[in-house]
Simulated scan of single mutants.
Amino acid sequence: MYNQNTHTGASFSLRNRVGRVIWGLVYVLLFRFSPKPLHEWRAFLLRLFGAKVGHGVHVYPKVNIWAPWNLVLKDECGVANGAILYSMGAITIGMQAVVSQGAHLCAGTHDYTKSGFPLVTMPITIGDNAWIAAETFIHPGITIGEGCVIGARAVVTQDMPAWMVCAGHPCKPIKERILSGSGRSSAVPLDESSTVC
């Protein structure tokens, strides 16, 4: 990291900070108030700032994006209005994955064991076909497996497995996700009383 003592200086380089100022202006003037259907326009703006954006990506205008150059958005994924992509570190959202309104993906934290309280960044990876439901909080360094569903307002503090429905605070696997007509075998839920919103 650029600076190990956040009490005496910025955690990021001047280049990074200037880039975020420019992005902030573009966001306010050209991104945030663009009409909802103009997904290709917003994808274009994100690419201008270094994001890797696949085909058919739907990022809505009121998504809060900290640093586009730390984003990988794979084909046909969607990020809803009100979601926060706090991309101090890398955030990857898989093909046809959905991040719902108000979800917060936080790719940075601080090392409270050191007197300088230095920033620590860790990547977040959302697998293909996963669904991050409304107002979920995902901690730095988390991987959400392919096809995994994270229930509304869950707090995810550890990796979640593929093709499972997970929920809670802290988030934990509840039952297998079964796609109708997929031929996937049924599994007994880990907790019959649990529900996912």
Results as ranks from 00 to 15, higher is better:
Tyr60Val: 05
Val53Ala: 15
Gln101Leu: 02
Arg15Tyr: 06
Ala133Gln: 13
Asp75Trp: 10
Val18Leu: 15
Ser115Gly: 02
Pro170Met: 11
Asp191His: 09
Leu190Glu: 07
Thr6Met: 11
Arg15Trp: 06
Leu179Tyr: 12
Ala83Ser: 14
Met1Ser: 08
Thr92Phe: 05
Val53Asp: 13
Phe137Gln: 09
Ala107Leu: 04
Ala130Gly: 09
Leu30Thr: 04
Tyr27Val: 04
Pro123Lys: 12
Tyr112Lys: 12
Ser194Asn: 06
Ala80Arg: 15
Leu30Trp: 13
Ile93Phe: 04
Gln158Tyr: 00
Val63His: 14
Glu135Leu: 01
Leu105Tyr: 08
Val165Met: 12
Ser185Tyr: 00
Gly181Thr: 07
Thr143Asp: 07
Gln101Trp: 03
Thr92Trp: 00
Asn5Gly: 04
Leu45Cys: 11
Asn70Ser: 11
Cys106Phe: 01
Pro123Phe: 08
Tyr86Gly: 01
Val59His: 05
Gly82Asp: 01
Gly141Pro: 03
Ser34Cys: 05
Arg153His: 12
Ala10Glu: 02
Ile22Trp: 09
Asn5Thr: 05
Ala51His: 09
Arg32His: 10
Leu179Ala: 06
Tyr2His: 15
Val53Cys: 13
Leu14Trp: 07
Arg47Tyr: 00
Ile144Lys: 10
Met122Tyr: 03
Ala90Phe: 01
Pro140Asn: 08
Gly168Pro: 05
Val28Pro: 00
Ala67Thr: 02
Ile144Cys: 10
Thr113Trp: 03
Arg20His: 06
Ala154Ser: 14
Val98Glu: 07
Leu190Pro: 02
Val18Ala: 08
Lys74Pro: 03
Gly108Phe: 02
Glu176Trp: 01
Trp163Tyr: 14
Trp131Gln: 09
Gln101Thr: 06
Pro35Glu: 11
Val28Asn: 07
Val63Tyr: 11
Asp75Glu: 15
Cys197His: 10
Arg153Trp: 03
Asp75Gln: 13
Ile84Val: 02
Arg177Pro: 04
Ser186Cys: 08
Gly108Lys: 09
Ile65Trp: 14
Ala162Gln: 09
Ala43Cys: 14
Gly145Val: 02
Asn3Ala: 05
Thr125Glu: 08
Thr195Gly: 11
Trp69Thr: 01
Glu76Leu: 07
Arg153Ser: 11
Ala154Arg: 05
Lys114Leu: 15
Thr113Ile: 00
Arg42Val: 00
Ala97Gln: 12
Lys36Cys: 05
Val79Arg: 11
Tyr2Met: 03
Gly94Ala: 02
Met95Leu: 02
Gly56Ala: 06
Phe33Asn: 13
Ile178Trp: 08
Gly24Ala: 13
Glu76Gln: 15
Trp163Lys: 09
Gly50Gln: 13
Leu25Ile: 12
Ala162Tyr: 02
Ile138Glu: 01
Trp69Arg: 13
Glu192Tyr: 10
Arg42Trp: 08
